[in-house]
Simulated scan of single mutants.
Amino acid sequence: MMTMTQSTSTPSLKKPRTIISKERIAIYLFLIICSLFFLLPLYIVLITSLKTMPEIRMGNIMSWPETWNTDAWVKAWSTACTGLQCEGVSVGFWNSIKILIPSLFVSILSGAICGYVLSYWRFKGAELFFGIILFGAFIPYQALIYPMIKIFATFGLYGTLPGIILVHTIFGLPIMTLIFRNYYSTLPSEIFKAARVDGAGFFGVFFHVLLPMSTPILIVAVILQVTGIWNDFLLGLIFGGRENMPMTVQLNNIVNTARGAKEYNVNMAATFLTAMVPLLVYFFSGRWFVRGIAAGAVKG
Rank of each mutant, 00 (worst) to 15 (best):
M1E: 12
Q6E: 10
S7M: 13
K14Q: 09
I25A: 15
S35D: 06
T48M: 07
S49A: 15
T52V: 09
P54K: 15
T67A: 07
T67S: 07
N69K: 14
D71P: 01
W73C: 09
S78N: 03
L84T: 14
G92P: 00
W94E: 12
I101W: 04
S103T: 09
I108F: 04
S110Y: 00
C114F: 08
C114W: 06
V117K: 01
S119T: 11
W121K: 13
A143K: 13
Y146D: 12
G156T: 08
L157T: 05
F171E: 03
F180V: 03
F180S: 04
N182P: 00
N182C: 06
Y183A: 09
S185L: 12
P188Y: 13
K193W: 05
A195F: 01
L210S: 03
L210H: 07
L211C: 11
T215K: 15
T215S: 14
T227Y: 02
I229Y: 02
I229W: 03
F233W: 12
L235Y: 02
G236S: 11
I238W: 05
E243H: 00
N244Q: 07
Q250N: 15
I254K: 15
I254R: 15
A258I: 07
Y264W: 14
N267T: 05
M268S: 10
T274P: 00
F283I: 13
F289V: 12
G296L: 06
